[in-house]
Amino acid sequence: MESVVNRAATAAPMASREVRWTTVGVAGLVLLVAAQVYGVLTSPPDRDMGHLQKIMYVHVPAAWNAMLAFLLVALASLRYLWKGRLADDLLAASAAEVGMLLTGLTLALGMIWGKPTWGIWWTWEPRLTSTAVLFFMFVAYLILRTFVDDAERRAQWSAVVGLLGALNVPIVYMSVRWWRTLHQMQSSPMTLDSSYTWPLRANAVALMLLMAYAVAHRYRSALMTQTADELMDRLALKGTPGGSRA
């Protein structure tokens, strides 16, 4: 097993990296406050939905970043299968946790937005529905992790589940879209007034920074836990030569 212990032993660069990530987190937080204030104060009400349009500034960035988190899960899983480094698995798990939070947030905000605009909390709209499916896949991924005790096995299995889940996302999206558009017309492609694009982008970037910070932080905690577990294992197996987990 390529050891996490060795990575953690190089504590000094780790610490400076920690400082760098904290900067990212603080920057994200500041930008998020600024972007929200800017968006709420400056953008005009929408023709149809009035000030409700402002929910876009929290809902859409959450959705974008949830997709990004899922992409990260898939890439880290792929890299784990390629190289077999346990750290990649921990990265995938950290991204999945943040991704689950973001998809959950997206769904909650979508409902809050849907009630006043559509009059209903939930509709079988393609994007909504595929986000819900994504949420369930994240949840299943994380539950699988808690059900498997052996670190190596957990890593292998969750990498495979993450990868197959990623393959399924486009198919789910297409199928739900056909299923719904066959019933309900999706008319013109999305158009967005220029006064809305900049606050939206700023909010998205802010949330992305926060997400990066969260994933990095969670990842480092997971690495530490893994290190501790390996130390304990080494202690338990002390004296047995070549003793490592099967």
Partner: peptide, 12 residues
């Protein structure tokens, strides 16, 4: 019965 409605976000 459903309406085909354009989906635009526009300031008045």
């Amino acid at each position: 019965l459903m309406i085909r409605h354009s989906e635009e976000y526009r300031a008045p």
